[in-house]
Amino acid sequence: MSEIMISLKDIRKTYKSMGDEVEALKSVTLDIKKGESVSVMGHSGSGKSTLLSIIGALNPPTSGIIEIDGIDIYKLSQEKRADFRREYLGFVFQQFQLIPYLTAHENVMLPLTTTKRSNKEKREMAEEVLCRVGLGNKIKRLPNQLSGGEQERVAIARAIVNEPPLILADEPTGSLDTKTGDEIMELFQKLNEEGLTVLMVTHNPDNTSYMGRTILMKDGQLSLDEEDFVSVYSNKKV
């Protein structure tokens, strides 16, 4: 069994925009070990979200090889890739992205919907994971009846209900106040301590202190330049 959870080799991604080719990622090579927690920082347009979507099996790269837990995910068919996302990945989206007409309990059950588990088992799994994130008493509430922090917890519960080995989070604290943001980051830290690999895109330098490693992106490439780190941490464009 490989010790590497995410392996990116010379990943490139170009988009066509208004007839021009835009290079979103330029030869990104990166390994993330199992059980690691990594934050990806960078200014807007640096390629963070593109990188996350490629690792999330949602966006095939223009070239390069990406393996997750030893599986070359873009060699899978689209439907198999959907199954892979369900089994291997837990997504935490920016602004929670809960389904407004489903209760917290039903939202958490979403990744289990298309599995062969019984309804009872699905209900119990969702309830247990909601208890883990501290929302055991609010499972019947609709998203609009929950606070921002609570909605984020539901989103995290939804990401881990299927017991995936890898969590991908896109700006999870972006719309939360500092105190709630810290609570959420503590939750991610706890999940990482329990053995989950966590990859998080964030703008907030404070969040990096909860992560084991920080990667900096600039103009579609990984940057090791100290000046860039200072720039990102101080939120200034270099």
Binding site: G56, L58, Q78, E79, A82, D83, F84, R85, R86, E87, L89, F91, F93, Q97, I99, L110, P111, T113, T114, R158, N162
Partner: peptide, 16 residues
Amino acid sequence: TREIGVFRALGFRKSH
């Protein structure tokens, strides 16, 4: 649209 994107990211197949 967004909702369907979330479903797809959570592992729903096109057929679902």
